[in-house]
Nucleic acid binder design. Sequence first.
DNA 1: CGTCAGATTGAACGTATGTTTAATATGTCA
DNA 2: TGACATATTAAACATACGTTCAATCTGACG
Lengths: 221, 221
Amino acid sequence: MQGPSAADLTAQAKIRTAAIAHFARDGFQKTNVRTIAATAGVSAGLVIHHFGSKEKLRAVCDDHVLRILTQRANSTSPAGLQELFGQYQSDPEEYHLHMRYMVRAIEEDTPAATTFVNTMVDESEQILRAGIADGSLRPSSDVRVLAVLSVLVSLTTLTMPAPLARTLGHEQAGPDLLRRIGLPMLEVFTRGMYADDSILKAAQAAWDDAQESPHPEKRDE
Amino acid sequence: MQGPSAADLTAQAKIRTAAIAHFARDGFQKTNVRTIAATAGVSAGLVIHHFGSKEKLRAVCDDHVLRILTQRANSTSPAGLQELFGQYQSDPEEYHLHMRYMVRAIEEDTPAATTFVNTMVDESEQILRAGIADGSLRPSSDVRVLAVLSVLVSLTTLTMPAPLARTLGHEQAGPDLLRRIGLPMLEVFTRGMYADDSILKAAQAAWDDAQESPHPEKRDE
DNA sequence: CGTCAGATTGAACGTATGTTTAATATGTCA
DNA sequence: TGACATATTAAACATACGTTCAATCTGACG
C-alpha cells in the first residue's frame, strides 16, 4: 500500500524493520545483532554504528512501534476495542507484527509498554464511561478495572499464544482465528455466561461483608 | 506448611526450586546457570552434573510445575476456573510463582505448556458443557472457543503483566489486585457489557452472510 | 581400615555475541 | 579534482555464559 516493504529503504530503516520483526517473533534476548544485520542485508557493525548498541536499537524500535500503534488508535475517533479488531482485519500482516511486538514489550515491562498500556487503558476507560452515560453499556462497579480487562482481553486475543491457538486447530493467531472468536466473544459481552445472577449476588455479599469488618486477618493461626 | 521451603532439601531439589523461581521471574534466557547455582547455594558445575544441561534442567522444571498445577486442578472435582482463583487465594506465594512459570512456558511454546493448555481447555470445555446442559450457563455458538477464552482470561488475569497492574495502582499482580478484579469481572460474566444486543445481531448477520457466499475473496483487485 | 561411588567444587575451556577498530567505498561540496 | 564526512565492511576484541575437567570431600560397605 504505502510502505516500501522491502528494498529501496535507508539502511537505518531496513535495520529497524528487521529488528522489529525479529524482536516480535523471537524476543529481544534470543535475537542477536548478526541475525538482524543479515535480515537487513547489512553487516553487524553497521547496526551498532547507526544505533549505538542493541539496547538503544530496541529503544528506537519501541518508540517506532509505539507511535504507529497509538496514532492508529487515535486517528479514528476513539472507538477503541472493536476498532482494534477492525484495524487488524485491514492489514493483518503488519498489524499483527506490531501487536506482537508490543505484547513482548509488555511482558518485558519496557518503558514504551507502560506508555502504550496507559494510553490504551485511559482511552478504553473514557469510551466505557461514555457508553455507560449514553446507555449503550451497562454500568460497572469499577470502570477502571473493566477498562484494564478490556485491553487485556483485546491484546491477548489478537496475539493469542501458539499453544492456545493450536487448541482451536490453528497453527497461530491470524484473521481466520479472529473471525471464529468474534461471535462467541460478543455473545458473552452482550448476555454474559451465567444464566442467573446467583454467583454475582454471592460475590457482592462477600464483598459487602469484607467492607464491614475491614481487616479480619487470619483469625485462626 | 508442608514444604521444606528453604534448607534441608536434597541439592537437586534446591536447584530445581531455584531454577523455577528464576525462570518464572526473569525468563529462561535471562537466567544463567551461575545465578541459579548461587540461589541454590551450590556451584555452577553441580547444576550441570545433576541435570546435564540448562535445557534439560528446564525440561525437569517444566514437568515438575506441570504436575503440580494439573494435579491441583484435578484434585478438586473439576470445577475449573473459579477454583483456580480459590487455589490462588489459599497460597498466593507459591501458586503465583507456578502460574507465572507456566505462562512463561506458554509464551515460549514449550511442550509442557501445550500439555497444560490442552488439559485446561479440555477440562474447561467439559465444565462449560455440563453447565449449559444443567441450565446454569448460557449456550454458546462455539463452546470450544469459549473454553479457550476462559482459560486465556484466567491465566492472564492471575499473572497480569506489570504495566497493566500498575495502571490499577498495584506494583504487580497479587491477592489484593485479584480481589478488586473479581466483582467487575463477575458482573460482565453474568450480565454482559452491552446494554442491548444490536452489536451481536449485526455480527450474527454478517456471519450468516459469510456462510451463504463461502469464499468471496477480494472482489475488487 | 581401605576402597569405591557419588557429590561437590574451582578453575579452565570453547563458543556465541555485543562491540570496537581500522580500512575502504561513496557521495558532497569547495 | 581534492578533501572531507558519512556509510559500510571484515576482522579483531572482550566478555558473558554453558559446559568440561581434574581434584577433593563424603559416606557406604566389605
